[in-house]
Amino acid sequence: MQGRGYKRKQFLYSGLREPYRLIMPTSSSPPLVQIFEAHKDYALGRRTVHALRGLTLEIPRGGFVVMQGPSGSGKTTLLNLIGCIDHPTSGRVLVAGQDTSLLSDAELSGFRARKLGFVFQNFNLIPVLSASENIEYPLRLIGVPLAEARKRAKAMLEEMNLREEADQRPSELSGGQCQRVAIGRALVTQPDLVIADEPTANLDSATGKMIINIMHEMRDRLGTTFLISTHDPEVAVLAEQRWNLRDGILIDP
């Protein structure tokens, strides 16, 4: 929220070593995300695929970070580690000061519900729920009473300029409207970090730009940290900080 002491920051890159090491030295508060020497390997038949190769990075609070890279570069894998929906093969991932490897599955679920928001390429809205109910859903997960959840969902719909669409189901909404509902759903619990995996990939360029602008604006107004992966260079232009990922390592943007 705006009252969290959010302060816009300029982020600097500290070097171009292999593997790329990203440090945000100007942040006065501890980093929101810290990754130390993270490796992620997958077994593909008899072959082992190294999706991430010893990644170390930090994300300060309030950042608007865009991650780019070709398919297979490890973007989604990195987002999964930061989003606590996957574990590194080795290395450590700290989100909001919490070492995620120390949490049980149930604890991780609670952690994600309170600290993280997700925006997906395919929106992944619950099709049987209305726009308003989709936004209520994460609030109910963290135990917000129904009346309060409805009130906050309604407020979020207004923020997203979706007041008229409150009772419509995802199938009755356009792609841009669906993604705005998804952003509202990700933000309604006031998470520390919103992770958006290719949020504009299924939208036309104008709608995509609008979605990124909304995210940007929300970052400015609510102080939520955004981490976005994209192929779209127009989206990357709006980023305060860009990372380029290739073959599981960060390279010079």
Partner: peptide
């Protein structure tokens, strides 16, 4: 399946 993944990501537990 994808919806299950999405709501799990949002914080629904296995028990949920």
């Amino acid at each position: 399946t994808r919806e299950i993944g999405a709501i799990r990501a949002m914080g629904v537990t296995r028990g949920g």
